[in-house]
C-alpha cells in the first residue's frame, strides 16, 4: 500500500498501526509531515504499542502541535487586544478557532497564520489598529495590494514586526470574484462568543467554511488536512442543519463533495446519499492523495489541471486572463532586471 493510503487508513483506524513495518513507517511519517498531518496522526495513535523509533518521532510531532497551539492562542490574544477599540468580537477561523474552542479538530493540528473574520465596514479601522500595534505590511507591489483590496475576501496579509506571525483579516470566506457569495452577515451574526474578546463560527458554518476553503478556493494541495478538519468536526458535533446552512451560503455543491470525500477517505458518519463518490470526486481524491513515499507531489498533469481550476473558480475568465497577463509581465520584468 502506498504511504499516503496508509496514512489515511491510520487516521481512520489507528488499530492498524501494529501491522506496519519500520521501513514503511519512514514513508508514512514523511508523507504525514508533507501533509501537515503528523501532529494529528500522533494524537490518533497515542498509547498504542509501536516500534521505539516511531514512538519518539510521534512524540516530537505532539510537542510541535502543543507549541503551535500555544503560539496560536497567544497570537489570537494579542490580536484581540489590539482590536479591542472595535468593540466587536474577533471571530477566529480555521486552526486557531479549533484550539480556542477546544475542539477535537484542533488536536495535533499545525497552525500557521492567524485567520480572523470581521464585518467589512470595520476593516479599515482594524487595519489601522493592527498597524499601530506593531503589525506591518509585507513587501508587495501596488497591483497586488490593489487586487487584494478590490477583489479578495481579506486584507493584504500583515506580519507582526517582532513575533513574525501573520494575521489575515477576512470579511467573508471566499474571494469576491468567486461565483458563490456566502452570507457574511449570517456568519458574523451566528458566531459563538468565547472569552477574551474572541468568537468562533457556529458549528455548521465551520464545516461550510472548511469545505469552501478545500473545494471552492484552492488547489487542493494539503487537502487531506482540510478534509480531516471536516471529519473531526462532524464526528464531534454531527451535521444537523448543515445542508440548509450550506444552501443558504450557496455552497451546497462544495459541502456535498466534501461530505462524500470525507466519508470515502475517513469513514465519516454521513447519511447514505453522501456515501458514494462520483467520477469527478474520484479525480479529487486522486489529486488529494498524489504523494509518493518521500512526500513528493506526483501526477504533474493533474496538479496543473487543479491549479488552472483553482484560478477559474476564483474569478471569471476575462478577469483571469487580465490577471495572469499582468502577473506574467511582472515576472518577466523581474527576471530581466534580476
Amino acid at each position: 500500500m502506498s504511504a499516503v493510503r496508509t496514512l489515511v487508513a491510520l487516521l481512520r483506524d489507528p488499530e492498524r498501526a501494529g501491522a506496519i513495518d519500520p521501513a514503511h513507517w519512514t514513508e508514512v511519517l514523511a508523507v504525514a509531515r508533507a501533509e501537515t498531518l503528523a501532529g494529528t496522526l500522533a494524537y490518533r495513535l497515542a498509547g498504542l504499542a509501536l516500534p521505539g523509533g516511531v514512538v519518539g518521532a510521534l512524540a516530537e510531532a505532539r510537542i510541535d502541535a502543543a507549541e503551535a497551539r500555544r503560539t496560536a492562542l497567544w497570537e489570537a490574544n494579542r490580536v484581540a487586544l489590539a482590536l479591542r477599540p472595535l468593540e466587536h468580537p474577533v471571530i477566529l477561523l480555521k486552526g486557531t478557532a479549533f484550539v480556542a474552542a477546544g475542539l477535537a479538530a484542533g488536536q495535533g493540528r499545525g497552525i500557521g497564520d492567524c485567520d480572523i473574520l470581521l464585518p467589512r465596514p470595520l476593516l479599515d479601522h482594524a487595519e489601522k489598529l493592527l498597524v499601530d500595534a506593531g503589525w506591518e505590511w509585507m513587501k508587495s507591489d501596488p497591483y497586488d495590494d490593489l487586487y487584494y483590496r478590490q477583489w479578495m475576501h481579506e486584507l493584504p496579509p500583515l506580519v507582526h514586526g517582532e513575533r513574525g506571525r501573520m494575521v489575515d483579516v477576512h470579511h467573508t470566506i471566499l474571494p469576491l470574484t468567486a461565483r458563490p457569495t456566502p452570507d457574511a452577515q449570517a456568519l458574523i451574526d451566528d458566531a459563538e462568543v468565547l472569552d477574551g474578546g474572541l468568537a468562533v463560527l457556529c458549528h455548521t458554518d465551520m464545516i461550510v467554511h472548511a469545505a469552501a476553503h478545500l473545494l471552492a478556493d484552492g488547489e487542493l494541495a494539503g487537502g487531506l488536512r482540510n478534509l480531516w478538519d471536516i471529519h473531526a468536526l462532524i464526528e464531534e458535533k454531527g451535521m444537523v442543519g448543515l445542508e440548509a446552512r450550506a444552501a443558504h451560503h450557496g455552497l451546497s455543491s462544495a459541502v456535498d463533495r466534501a461530505l462524500r470525500l470525507t466519508h470515502a477517505l475517513y469513514g465519516t458518519t454521513v447519511p447514505a446519499r453522501w456515501q458514494r463518490l462520483t467520477m469527478i470526486d474520484r479525480l479529487y481524491r486522486c489529486r488529494m492523495m498524489a504523494r509518493d513515499g518521500w512526500g513528493r507531489e506526483r501526477y504533474k498533469a493533474l496538479r496543473t489541471v487543479s491549479y488552472i481550476r483553482s484560478h477559474l473558480i476564483r474569478m471569471p475568465l476575462p478577469m483571469l486572463i487580465r490577471h495572469l497577463w499582468i502577473k506574467w509581465r511582472k515576472a518577466k520584468a523581474a527576471s530581466g532586471s534580476g
Partner: peptide, 10 residues
C-alpha cells in the same frame, strides 16, 4: 543502518 528513519533528506 536502521529500518526506520526519523527524517528523510532528498
Amino acid at each position: 543502518r536502521p529500518e526506520f528513519a526519523d527524517y528523510s533528506v532528498r
